[in-house]
Design a protein around this nucleic acid. Structure first.
Length: 160
DNA sequence: GCCAACGTTGGC
DNA sequence: GCCAACGTTGGC
């Protein structure tokens, strides 16, 4: 029996990895790596499952907001960058036989016609309650509800 | 660029 | 195991 589909929000700085970068990736699929926060890692490792649906959120750089959607193409596996000394995400303390950090593969579903801004999100009763709208909530991998998923699509003017 | 909020580190 | 110092996140 299939497990219940979950909904998530992943943050990325567009200058590091944008939704256009994802669209330009082979098969519009890429490794979501570099998560170095334990709570976010636990979500990636334990809860994010194949087929789950994800909001792509532009963090720290304009245009802030939800740029589009993607789905999980491969569930959690060791983030290779933790073993790459040339990477800023290298972690010398991560044991090779028990990797500390997890990545997942994501595949583009759609880029929204325009980024759904924080102003739009804040003006919507459903979206305003999302974790990402809370001040000081820094978690880069967040669960969202089905209602929030649908409300963001309504604001974007597209079908889920 | 500012600064508040948060997570991690390290001395004790 | 506490907690101050420090580094990072992230909106403004």
């Amino acid at each position: 029996m299939a497990s219940k589909l979950r909904y998530w929000l992943f943050k990325s700085e567009p200058s590091a990895f944008s939704i256009d970068d994802l669209a330009a990736s082979p098969e519009q699929t890429a490794l979501w790596d570099g998560v170095r926060n334990y709570q976010a890692r636990n979500f990636l490792r334990d809860d994010v499952a194949l087929g789950d649906l994800v909001l792509f959120y532009n963090s720290r750089e304009e245009p802030l907001g939800v740029a589009g959607t993607m789905k999980i193409a491969k569930a959690g596996y060791p983030d290779p960058k933790q073993f790459d000394p040339s990477s800023k995400y290298f972690d010398a303390k991560s044991p090779a036989d028990a990797p500390r950090w997890t990545g997942v593969d994501v595949r583009l579903i759609q880029k929204f016609p325009a980024v759904v801004s924080r102003e739009q999100l804040g003006a919507d009763a459903t979206c305003a309650a999302m974790m990402v709208m809370k001040r000081g909530m820094r978690l880069s991998i967040q669960p969202v509800t089905r209602e929030e998923w649908l409300a963001v699509h309504k604001l974007a003017g597209v079908r889920p």
